[in-house]
Amino acid sequence: MTGTATTTSVSLNVRDVHLAFGANKVLRGADLDVARGGTACVIGPSGSGKSTLLRTINRLIEPDRGDVLLDGRSVLRDDPDALRQRVGMVFQQFNLFPHMSVLRNITLALRRIKKLSEDEATRIARAQLELVGLAAKADSRPAHLSGGQQQRVAIARALALQPQVMLFDEATSALDPELVKGVLAVMADLSAGGMTMVVVTHEMGFAREVADTVAFMDHGVVLAAGEPAAIFEAPEHPRLRQFLSQVL
């Protein structure tokens, strides 16, 4: 499916983002830079703020302080609903709408938000399903698909809106091991196609092979970021070394 990414990918910069839930400081000055068409994998222990960082990028959670820039322009004053059409997101639990068919899961936003005709929305949705290998499942309900298939539908749903950035929040963590590869393959292909991506993941092999940048988060900050070789082969930060020794 190489080449399916939009040609309008943008660079992404997260600058000194802070966020607290009451006294609990979840993000304490997180920074992240992703070049246009690049892929950043965010790794780190549970509770380090990885998923929260993703949600501040598309403003599902508003940061208390800091900035998020697409192509060098701050998006924090944009209409958040419009921003989310530019920044697609895929979740750990897929978040497909169970009362709708697979096809309607994809056409809903195309019809209601993009205001496309039913024929046009259906054409785009079927094309996206074809790309993730699920054209035959268009009329199925999500509950009748495997976890891997559901996640690929979720990716197709996000891609149908032609986002400029894609966020993946532990997209394979809820899948049975034998279904992980198919989803990772779709993500790797998307990366190769030039989509700007931020991937929160536990899949170290994926991060090593696909990412342009790997960022290690702990306690709400990015402690180390760099090319995969530098992060995995020559980790300088002691906390990163400790983390890698536990997961590799």
Binding site: M1, T2, L131, V183, L184, H202, F206, V210, L248
Partner: peptide
Amino acid sequence: DDDGGLALVGETALPPQTATGKDQR
């Protein structure tokens, strides 16, 4: 019969090694 979509997306797109390393939960 679900193969995870590999047959259609092309397994070559996948990195040769996909070690799964989950951090402590």
